[in-house]
Simulated assay, not measured.
Amino acid sequence: MQKITPCLWYDGQAKEAAEHYVGIFGGEAGDSRVLDITYYGEEAPGRTGSVLTVAFRLAGQEYLGLNGGPQFPFTEAISLSVDCADQAEVDRLWAALSEGGEEGRCGWLKDRFGVSWQIVPEELPRLLADPDAAKAERTMKAMLGMAKLDIQALRDA
């Protein structure tokens, strides 16, 4: 059992979101699945029998989805960053997570539930930390002009 579990506050969409994410990350290394679902009881503030929480795992990391209501929508102040091995993985995750959502800049997007994601090639930190400061600066400039990150364009910078 992991010590810290991120809890994501949804407005009635926790189960749908968990199932959506499991479908996207199901083939990734590590275990991805819905672990447990709890329901509102008669004494709880939600509708009796509706989903309260959904525990789920994505590529080995556990999360808790809470149907807490509309009071606290997601913002970019917190995001889930995904390290991608290659451009094919960047492309696949970008397409799946941005569908019905909103594409951002520099590898950021919001999914259809409002959760912010960073889809990042594993190679990017190395390119940005290149000992040649001019090359690192060109990489940064190239990245700032992109929505979905293009590994070859970053290398070419």
Rank of each mutant, 00 (worst) to 15 (best):
F74C: 07
G41L: 00
F25P: 04
Y39T: 09
E62P: 14
E16A: 15
E76Y: 04
Q61R: 08
A59V: 09
S79G: 06
F74D: 05
E76T: 11
A77H: 07
A29V: 08
Y63V: 14
R47P: 13
G46Q: 14
R33Q: 14
T48C: 10
G49I: 12
L52G: 00
P70Q: 14
T53W: 11
E28W: 05
A18H: 02
A18D: 03
I78H: 07
D36G: 00
D31I: 13
G69H: 12
F56N: 01
S50P: 02
F74E: 07
G41P: 00
G60W: 00
S50C: 03
H20N: 14
G68H: 08
P70Y: 13
Y21T: 06
A44R: 13
G69N: 11
Y40N: 14
T75R: 05
L64S: 09
P73N: 10
G65L: 05
A55C: 04
I78T: 12
A59G: 05
F74N: 05
A44K: 10
P73H: 10
V51T: 15
L58T: 04
D36W: 03
V34D: 05
E28Q: 07
F25G: 08
E42Y: 01
N67W: 07
E19W: 15
T53G: 01
E19R: 09
D31A: 11
G69V: 13
T75D: 03
G23E: 12
T38V: 00
G68F: 12
Y40S: 05
L64W: 04
S32A: 09
G46H: 13
Q61M: 10
G23H: 12
V22E: 06
Y21W: 15
S79D: 03
P70G: 11
T48I: 14
H20E: 13
P73F: 11
Q71I: 10
Y39H: 09
H20M: 11
R57T: 04
Y21D: 04
G60I: 03
V34R: 01
A77P: 01
F25N: 07
A18M: 02
C84S: 07
G68P: 05
Q71T: 15
F25H: 09
F56Q: 04
Q61N: 08
S32L: 02
S79T: 09
N67Q: 10
G49F: 03
